[in-house]
């Protein structure tokens, strides 16, 4: 009966088979708005990273500041004539452009670090809850429910009131306010993926639980997590700005965008708009860029659209 043994099945032409990553990149690039958002985001992040080299002065170095240059409108020259304050100065004579670049650095840094930490914690908990189920799952999800029933700003404010100020404290507060989103998203993805036959197959092949969780289950739960994380970075940055604006967040020595806005707030009515408005615009552009990118990622990574 050997004549009928199947010969190697003919292969479809290899030309048009797309790798998953390449498909995502191509689908992402289909939207011009999203490409603009990505470019804007990259520009802002780059500017924040390179702040020490880009900024005309170091806004934290009090020696470089000249109190006599305080509250100058945009485009004014400094008292010693060495530089032009493109975006004006604040009441301490600090160049607003430099302050914004350094502020972005702190805002982006705090947002990204807090998001990554919350993602790692929420992902691990959610993965375990989804895969093992049972009591652990029930307890964890009730905690998440309770936490999510409070506004995140309230959670963060309570924690900051307990811990006090500081960049590490605010990261902790942001993580505490946001881990539950990741835990929930991961859990629901793990529930769906965990029921699929490839997980059963992995169990039958005698693979260890850690291997099944991290090599088989987790990679397949990532697409919705990436979307949530992208949106939550924006939320974390906005939350940090709000807390700093309220004076709860970062100390005055490390002014983030929220604090800059708060500093200029009192001058708004006296016509010195630039102290508040330019940091506000920077924050707005940053959050807009992140949301544009996240929106397109959501469309691209949506499994329902992916199947087509």
């Amino acid at each position: 009966m050997s004549e009928t043994s199947p010969r190697p099945a003919a292969s479809p032409a290899d030309s048009e088979v797309e790798r998953p990553l390449r498909r995502v990149v191509r689908a992402y690039a289909e939207s011009r708005v999203a490409l603009f958002g990505l470019a804007l985001l990259l520009a802002i992040v780059l500017a924040a990273l390179l702040a020490p080299w880009l900024a005309p002065q170091n806004p934290y170095d009090l020696m470089q500041l000249d109190m006599l240059d305080g509250r100058l409108p945009p485009g004014s020259a400094s008292g010693d004539g060495q530089l032009t304050y493109l975006l004006g100065t604040d009441e301490q004579g600090r160049d607003m452009l430099s302050a914004i670049l350094y502020g972005l650095r702190i805002s982006v840094g705090v947002g990204v670090v807090a998001t990554l930490l919350a993602l790692a914690i929420g992902m691990a908990l959610g993965l375990a809850a989804g895969y093992f189920g049972g009591r652990f799952d029930a307890v964890l999800m009730r905690i998440a429910d309770i936490q999510l029933s409070f506004p995140s700003i309230l959670v963060a404010m309570i924690l900051l009131a307990l811990f006090g100020q500081g960049i590490d404290k605010i990261v902790i507060a942001l993580v505490a306010a946001q881990w539950a989103y990741y835990a929930r998203t991961t859990r629901s993805a793990a529930l769906v993926e965990g029921r699929k036959e490839y997980i059963e197959a992995a169990r039958l092949l005698g693979l260890s639980t850690a291997r099944i969780l991290f090599r088989h289950l987790l990679p397949n739960c990532l697409p919705p997590l990436i979307v949530v994380a992208a949106l939550q970075v924006a939320a974390a940055i906005a939350l940090e700005a709000t807390l700093s604006f309220l004076g709860l967040g970062l100390p005055v020595t490390e002014p983030s965008l929220g604090l800059l806005i708060a500093n200029g707030f009192q001058y708004l009515y006296s016509g010195r708009y630039w102290i508040s408005v330019f940091p506000g615009v920077a924050l707005l552009l940053l959050i807009l860029a992140i949301n544009l990118v996240a929106d397109q990622l959501r469309d691209v990574l949506n499994p329902r659209l992916q199947s087509q």
Binding site: M1, T4, P6, R7, A9, A10
Partner: peptide, 10 residues
């Protein structure tokens, strides 16, 4: 049973 007389290829 005899093997099925299959159509080769796909």
């Amino acid at each position: 049973p005899q093997p099925l007389r299959q159509i080769p290829g796909m």
